[in-house]
Amino acid sequence: MSAISLRELDVTFPDGTKGLQDISLDITPHEFVALVGPSGSGKTTLLRTIAGFVHPSAGTVHVGGKDLTGVAPENRGMGMVFQQHAVWPHMSVADNVGYPLKFTKDSSQSRKEKVQRTLALVGLDGFDQRRPSSLSGGQRQRVALARAIIADPTVLLLDEALSALDEPLRDILRRELVALTKRVGLTTVHVTHDRSEALAIADRIVVLQEGRIEQIATPEDLLVRPQSAHVAAFISDATIIPAELSADGAHSQALGMTWESDMIEDFSSATPSPSSTEVKLALLPFDAQLVAADTPGAIAATLESVLFERDHFSITATNGDFTFRTTSTRRPAIGDSVGIKPHRLLSYPA
């Protein structure tokens, strides 16, 4: 069983930059966790700290109940796959995949059989004598994945492992990767800049900002109940609206709109100190409806872009400095005057 337990991790780089600040996180055995956040948020630093390539300034890393904080990467029993395939071009597929077994006491026949089983597991049965130069990008990434799991790691670490691949191959490998990790029983930590990918494949998502954890949640909870305005904007492209509380709801001076309190989720918990009435309201795209410009309760906006997404159109509309996202089953025209009608607003302290 390969639970990961991180406690009060700090990473300070030699120039004084804070890479991680007070990170505490528990990952259960066989769980698939995605790390997301903007550039510089600390997601790759956190992954490399788990792997042992970055040494924490404070805190501990436990895996399977063992303290690995000071243990070298090669002795942590982990497999790692990077964005670039890192497949050695001068070696056959079998030699690439079997390389980690050179450091074991297995017989040559046992190693050969294990290579064949692992290649079959990642869909490369019969590719053992091929050279990497004859493989597609997706096949080379499968080789890298096979090499990462052949030594029976307790943990699999993925650093943007799919981002260099084009669709639809990337989608195929996402599905295969999730199925493989569940079938083999790996505890997996996956760094990705692709929010849709994280939402699609992770059991839980860790959102990082400036080296700190902002929220840990299932994809469903993260979308519906983001715990901060930043998470709402980063994960769901929510529109953040500064507003002031009133006795009956909240008012946005910039938009000239007032909303009653029954439309505002967590209204009471977001109430600031008595000396301030300022809050941030988040309007999530799926809580906004595209309506006619003169619809009562709608925010007047101008349609800026229309993107077709299989069974609907993705809509972007603007009002001054505010950008709104929503969807429509019909294709409106760019430049149209439209209305954006909120059905729910999330409220956070300013």
Rank of each mutant, 00 (worst) to 15 (best):
I205Y: 14
P272R: 09
H190T: 02
E278N: 09
P332R: 01
S24E: 01
F234T: 06
D203W: 11
I172V: 10
A51V: 06
E210I: 03
Q109Y: 08
R130I: 03
S275G: 05
L255H: 03
S134Q: 15
I315N: 11
Q141N: 04
D125R: 08
S133I: 04
Q141G: 06
G79N: 09
V155G: 10
R147Y: 12
A282W: 11
R212L: 04
A243H: 12
T118K: 07
R225Y: 09
D106L: 15
I264F: 02
A72C: 05
A254S: 13
G137P: 09
S228G: 08
D166T: 08
A300L: 08
E74T: 07
G138M: 10
L124Q: 11
P342F: 15
R331S: 10
G335C: 05
A72D: 03
T44P: 04
G185I: 13
F286R: 03
T329F: 13
D237K: 15
T187K: 10
S163Q: 13
Q215M: 09
E309Q: 14
L25R: 09
A202D: 00
T69N: 05
I23S: 00
S252Q: 10
L290E: 03
K114G: 06
S24V: 01
P274S: 14
K18R: 15
T60Q: 14
R170S: 09
G40Y: 02
I299Y: 06
L169S: 12
V191G: 10
S268H: 13
P29Y: 07
P332S: 07
Q289W: 00
A232Y: 02
H85C: 05
A232N: 03
G19E: 06
F308P: 08
Q83W: 09
K43N: 07
I340L: 12
E210W: 03
T302G: 00
L283P: 14
S41I: 02
A270S: 15
G70R: 12
D287I: 04
A146I: 05
S39V: 02
A333G: 00
I23E: 03
G77N: 14
A350P: 01
D67T: 14
R204Y: 05
S347K: 02
V306L: 09
H90A: 09
G138A: 09
P56N: 09
D159L: 12
I264G: 07
V93N: 01
S246E: 11
A254N: 08
T302K: 12
R111P: 01
A229T: 06
E309A: 13
I172K: 14
D203A: 08
A86V: 07
